[in-house]
């Protein structure tokens, strides 16, 4: 069941995901990776999508552009609207215009995400020529400008190189340049720094911030790292076991997280000045996605759980003026 939001559909949203459900069927077992997710992104807004590994962040993001491999995956419910077009039901031709045009993606591992046998320049110009009427020379010139824009030195020479000739950070810059090629309204970045060295991570984040300021595009930023969310995002959406459990402006989440899971995630963040001590983790594991229990999926690990938490369906409800929380005791402390 998808949750029905109390508020009316937000007509100013650039992208509105409603009641999204995505299943994976593996050996006759159904895994509900995404279970009724609602998510809106406004024009120019930057939304952070956080949650532990396996909570459904990537599946949510890939569902938006209909990139879920089928089989084993399939979107079984909900809608994903951009300007009144429902991407879940849109014909291939319409999808193609949105993919890489209005919405572009940057993935986690730039080495495996770039085609190893095609030159950087060809991969860039292909992206442009799929959406714009450009001749080869113009596309080439624009490709060079894009590499300049993401601060890749010697752009002209890079165009003729192959992905394996670049460093990890350079490769991710190429991915970002490619994503920007058609001036997208929304950039989806799925853990774009996880595969990179720590020093390079900061550079890539700086680049994303700079580009967002310059272009005004919206951003859906997926990460494990609340610290990055604090730096880069306006609003945060927290997922747990395929569901959104909290949605709030970034500063409020840090000041006082309403959902016990969010609170624990925030506590896991290394504090400023404490150096890099070993990150505290929340004990226990999320439920198996083919056997999601009744009631709150977090109940087994929650430090304020009670009997009522294990019954029925717990809805995502308004909390304060601008937050949504899926918990019967929002804000409770042990």
């Amino acid at each position: 069941m998808s949750d029905v939001r109390a508020d009316a559909p937000d007509t100013t949203a650039l992208l509105a995901v409603r009641g999204l459900r995505t299943d994976f069927v593996v050996e006759d077992e159904v895994y509900r990776a995404v279970d009724g997710v609602d998510l809106t992104i406004g024009p120019g807004e930057s939304v952070g999508l956080v949650g532990e590994s396996g909570s459904g962040k990537t599946v949510t993001a890939m569902s938006i552009l209909q990139l879920i491999p089928d089989p084993p995956g399939r979107i079984v419910g909900g809608s994903i609207e951009i300007d009144g077009i429902d991407l879940v039901r849109a014909p291939e031709r319409v999808l193609r215009q949105v993919r890489g045009g209005r919405i572009a993606c940057v993935f986690q591992d730039p080495l495996t995400s770039l085609n190893p046998v095609l030159q950087i320049g060809d991969q860039l110009t292909e992206m442009m020529r799929a959406h714009q009427d450009l001749d080869r020379r113009a596309a080439r010139r624009r490709a060079r400008e894009l590499l300049d824009a993401v601060h890749i030195p010697q752009a002209e020479r890079r165009l003729a190189e192959y992905p394996h000739e670049l460093s990890g950070g350079m490769r991710q810059r190429v991915m970002i340049a490619m994503a920007l090629a058609n001036d997208p309204e929304l950039l989806i970045a799925d853990e774009p720094t996880t595969a990179l060295d720590v020093t390079v991570q900061a550079e890539i984040l700086d680049l994303l911030r700079e580009l967002r300021e310059r272009t005004g595009m919206s951003l859906l930023f997926i990460t494990h790292d609340f610290g990055v969310v604090a730096e880069l995002c306006d609003r945060v959406v927290v997922m747990y076991a395929g569901k959104v459990v909290e949605q709030a402006p970034v500063e409020k989440v840090f000041a006082d997280a309403a959902h016990p899971y969010t609170r624990r995630l925030v506590d896991c963040m290394p504090q400023l000045g404490e150096g890099r001590k070993d990150l505290e983790v929340i004990p226990g594991l999320p439920p198996a996605l083919n056997r999601i229990p009744d009631g709150c999926a977090f109940a087994e690990r929650c430090d304020v759980a009670e009997e009522a938490c294990r019954r029925g369906t717990i809805a995502l409800e308004g909390y304060g003026e601008d937050r949504l929380v899926r918990c019967i005791k929002p804000g409770a402390r042990p």
Binding site: M62, L65, L67, P69, E92, L95, R96, Q97, V98, R99, G100, G101, A104, C105, F107, D109, T112, S113, L114, N115, P116, L118, E126, M127, A130, H131, M175, M178
Partner: peptide
């Protein structure tokens, strides 16, 4: 199954280009 095929699809090129070129 590779990531770069997903990248290719995400670029909005035709299925035929994804299959042959990538």
């Amino acid at each position: 199954r590779q990531d770069y095929v997903r990248t290719a699809t995400s670029k909005g090129i035709t299925r035929q280009s994804v299959i042959m070129r990538h």
